[in-house]
Design a protein around this nucleic acid. Structure first.
Lengths: 225, 225
DNA sequence: TTGTCTATTTATCATCTGATAAACTAAGCC
DNA sequence: GGCTTAGTTTATCAGATGATAAATAGACAA
């Protein structure tokens, strides 16, 4: 009865491909690549059999390359979170020989190209909802390596003193713009919503608005100092 | 063997509560309430046995009130998406006898109180990742009932003509602020991140910035008209 | 008290799903 | 060819999970 609907044992001559046999290295990378795409679409409750089916082989083969499903998921996390932010971006961001508006637009262009992708955005959100610690570490990284430097550049832009540490108020304020731009990717890849197709123009307008309108917010930080 | 770890059959005198017996109505509402909290935390792959355990009764009882798990999830969706946006908010938003800045701040205060909650934000994001159609309908509702009116108020604010329909550029621009504020709730409830505790002040600064800095963005819409 | 109704539990099923062991087979080497 | 190595499949397990049927028991009425 279990065998009644299995007829593939001996009858497989019409299958054009005899059977691919990949080396361990390339097979492993192939699995990781497809897993990113697969888990991005289905979430981490996606079934191993369906993943294997997409890869064109049977489910137990996955366990030759990854001891458990969680091991595979961890590798996917690594791939998603690791080396996303290039240190050079922050260096460029702080190059005061160029206009801040230009630097910010350029930064968000390269940053968005690296992260505002279907796979990245969705895996990022899935893992955050799961309470993954990597996500929280990543947020701290963004605050320390990106938003805090931006706050300091804004102080310089508004010709304000730069003695005190960046406050939560300043941080929250740049988070609004940062989050607003990130939310473009959420609308596109998670909500599957219709969005404007010229993202660099959206960035340009958002940055221009923030610079033109935030002076008093940053100034107020030093009123009673 | 199956029975070896079951000792609750006859021995249950020490359990203080003998056994609650609720009416159908109140039990059903109790299940929905707890389900919202449960699925918000675990996602919709949360197990029915764990949900029942939280409710203090056994798993099959769920199936007396909801025919399938999906039925229960659908009820949770309804509860989350239904009647979130009160028509009066939009009426107030368009009351030009009051300053726009004041109206926008007030709107985002009531709007955030209704939606920027742990349960709501998480269920919203889980369902969006699942590709729920209700989510896409909700986004359209926001665009039509909230963001488009805001764009029209901004045109009035900048004393621009109000003849053409609201463009995608205008919409995308107010989406940045709207999304930036929404992202505050994402950081708080999904990333479990440290956020400023005075959200109304954050709203106030974001609105003030947008109004002070967006004039050229909206004006440019009518340059070549 | 007794009886009826229905809320709740116990027992159980069928299927799914992650994981393992063993059989199979393609590829390289002698 | 025959041998060895390693990539792949087949068969299968054990536990989890949504769902159902039947047994149990609290509440209320006569």
């Amino acid at each position: 009865m279990t065998n009644s609907n299995r007829k593939s044992k001996t009858i497989k001559p019409e299958n054009s491909a005899p059977r691919k046999r990949l080396g361990a290295r390339s097979r492993e990378q192939q699995i990781i690549d497809e897993s990113i795409s697969f888990f991005a679409e289905k979430g981490f409750t996606g079934k191993t059999r369906e993943l294997a089916s997409r890869l064109g082989f049977t489910q137990p083969l996955l366990y030759r390359y990854f001891h458990t499903k969680q091991d595979l998921i961890d590798r996917v996390f690594e791939e998603v979170y690791l080396n996303r932010i290039k240190p050079d971006w922050i260096v460029q961001l702080q190059d005061r020989s160029r206009p801040l508006e230009e630097r910010l637009c350029e930064f968000y262009t390269v940053y968005s190209q690296a992260t505002y992708r279907y796979e990245w955005i969705r895996i990022y959100m899935f893992s955050a909802l799961m309470g993954e610690k990597l996500n929280q570490r990543y947020i701290k990284l963004i605050e320390n390596e990106i938003l805090t430097p931006i706050c300091l550049e804004l102080r310089d832009y508004y010709r304000l003193p730069d003695c005190e540490p960046v406050s939560q108020v300043e941080l929250d304020h740049v988070w609004v713009t940062h989050g607003g731009l990130f939310y473009y990717a959420v609308r596109k890849h998670i909500y599957h919503s219709r969005v404007g197709n010229d993202f660099s123009a959206i960035v340009s307008r958002a940055i221009s608005t923030m610079l033109a309108g935030s002076k008093t917010i940053f100034s107020d930080q030093f009123d009673d100092a």
